[in-house]
Computed example of a mutant assay.
Amino acid sequence: MSQTDRKIGFIGLGIMGKPAAKNLVEADYELLVNDVRDDPVEELEAHGAEARATPREVAADSDVVITFLPEGKHVRQVALGEDGIIEGIDAGQVCIDMSTIGPRAIREVAEEFEAAGVEIIDAPVSGSEEGSKDAWMSIMIGGDEETVEDHRELFEVMGGNVVRVGGTGAGQVAKVCNNMIAAAEMTSLAEALVFAEKAGIDQGNLVDAISGGAAQTWALDTRAEDMIAGEFEPGFFASYMYKDLRIATRDGEEYGVPQLITSTNHELYKSLEEQGRGDLDFAGIMTLYEDLAGLD
Rank of each mutant, 00 (worst) to 15 (best):
V157T: 14
K133W: 06
V162P: 03
A170F: 01
D90G: 05
L24R: 02
I11V: 14
E146S: 15
D35T: 00
E45F: 03
D208A: 13
E156T: 01
G294S: 12
P124V: 11
R56Q: 08
G127W: 05
P258W: 04
E42T: 10
Y240S: 15
A190H: 12
G9N: 07
E145R: 12
L272E: 02
D251T: 13
L31M: 12
I86W: 04
Y269T: 06
D251L: 12
G142C: 09
L245I: 05
E191C: 06
H151Q: 11
A49S: 05
P19R: 07
A105H: 11
A215F: 05
H47P: 00
F232I: 10
F10P: 02
S2G: 12
V41P: 03
V148P: 05
L268V: 10
S128R: 11
K243T: 08
E129R: 15
A49D: 04
L32T: 08
A20I: 14
F282N: 11
G117Y: 08
E253A: 15
I106A: 02
G9P: 05
S271K: 14
E130K: 15
M186L: 12
A51M: 08
M227W: 08
S126Y: 08
D208R: 14
G14N: 03
G166A: 13
T4N: 12
L189G: 02
D5E: 15
M286W: 04
S2M: 14
L13V: 03
A21W: 00
G81D: 01
E254G: 05
M186H: 10
A170P: 02
E43L: 06
G84L: 01
A184R: 00
D122L: 06
V118L: 05
H151S: 04
M286S: 07
A215K: 06
T67I: 01
F155I: 04
R37K: 15
E254I: 13
P258G: 06
M98F: 05
V36S: 01
W136E: 11
D63I: 04
V207R: 11
I141A: 07
W136Y: 15
D226H: 13
M186D: 01
M158S: 03
P234Y: 13
P258L: 04
M227A: 13
A174T: 09
E290Y: 08
E231Y: 04
G294V: 04
G212F: 09
D244F: 04
E129K: 15
P124S: 11
A184H: 03
D150L: 05
I201F: 15
D61R: 13
V64K: 10
V109N: 01
V176R: 05
I96R: 04
R6Y: 07
L245T: 08
A238E: 09
A182W: 07
A27H: 09
H74D: 15
R277E: 15
D208F: 07
Y269W: 05
L206C: 06
T287A: 13
G102Q: 07
E87F: 02
G204V: 07
V165T: 14
L272Q: 03
A79K: 00
R164W: 09
A192P: 03
G171P: 06
V148A: 10
P55M: 01
A49W: 01
K22Q: 14
L288V: 13
E30R: 13
L260T: 08
D281G: 10
